[in-house]
């Protein structure tokens, strides 16, 4: 009994220390965003205030809300399309018989391991030719391409766990291939869709390099670039405003994660369906 309590105690201690280690920067960010001073080492100077938030929301020239809006739209569209294309591809890969299937999957995975920096120069030229620089499309296209392999792998692993006999049963019950996909495969891999969608969304939301190169101003600029290029009126680094902006841009991501975490945990622990 005492041993059990001790183990529990150790468990709590470990969990708390790991958690606090992970959350430390976030906590720092939170405190600074709500204080008038950014010198966290001298605690006596810290005064609680909303001034940072009011400042960035009131000043339209800072475009904070534009950046958040851009990020959300670009991430949502690119992750949705990525998962949509990936699921069609994964359906074909998991259901059709063709040679060298496994090599194809490996090749796709390998292509996703390219460092981004290797193609960013060419990508800029390309988007420039298409007159897409500083538009949503300039980012949506590369993000779809970049997240497709991961989405595809996740969806293939989910689809191939669904027994083929279900397809056969549905075929006999009168479905065509598209109906099988919509009525059987899709509902059975909901956690897969959500995991893949969320991972793609987060990638797009956090991506920096492409966003830096392919956007110019608030018309298409996303949050990470916005934060990096944040400057006060006199060229100084207004840490309080930066932190407040970061916290603001985190809110939608946290909300989305909270809403879908049920499915993600399901997806991570169960991995598809069990009879």
């Amino acid at each position: 009994m005492r041993e059990e309590k001790f183990v529990k105690f150790l468990f709590v201690i470990t969990a708390v220390s790991i958690l606090s280690f992970c959350l430390m920067p976030f906590f720092y960010m939170l405190v600074i965003s709500f204080s008038t001073s950014w010198d966290i080492t001298s605690l006596d100077k810290i005064r609680f205030s909303f001034s940072n938030y009011i400042e960035i929301l009131k000043d339209p020239s800072l475009h904070c809300l534009d950046y958040i809006k851009n990020s959300l739209i670009i991430s949502a569209v690119s992750s949705f399309i990525s998962v949509f294309i990936a699921s069609l591809g994964a359906y074909a890969i998991s259901r059709l018989d063709f040679p060298f299937k496994f090599f194809l999957l490996l090749f796709i995975l390998a292509s996703s391991m390219f460092p981004q920096i290797t193609i960013v120069g060419y990508l800029f030229k390309f988007m420039n030719k298409l007159h897409l620089i500083n538009t949503y499309l300039a980012l949506i296209f590369p993000y779809i391409a970049w997240t497709l392999p991961l989405s595809l792998w996740i969806m293939v692993s989910y689809f191939s766990k669904i027994p083929k006999e279900l397809d056969k049963a549905a075929l006999i019950d009168g479905c065509n291939w598209f109906q099988i996909f919509i009525k059987i495969i899709l509902p059975l891999s909901k956690p897969g869709f959500i995991s893949a969608g969320l991972l793609s969304f987060l990638f797009a939301f956090n991506e920096f390099l492409f966003a830096l190169m392919l956007t110019i101003d608030y018309h298409a600029r996303t949050v990470p670039v916005g934060v990096a290029l944040f400057q006060g009126l006199h060229g100084e680094l207004p840490w309080g405003s930066i932190m407040a902006f970061s916290i603001l841009s985190l809110i939608p991501v946290i909300l989305i994660t909270l809403i879908f975490q049920r499915y993600i945990i399901q997806g991570l622990t169960r991995g598809g369906l069990k009879e």
């Binding site: 027994p163 006999e165 279900l166 056969k168 049963a169 006999i172 059987i184 059975l188 369906l273």
Partner: peptide, 12 residues
Amino acid sequence: AMVFQSYALYPH
């Protein structure tokens, strides 16, 4: 109509 060994009921 067909009945399969694993029954192939739709789990969802």
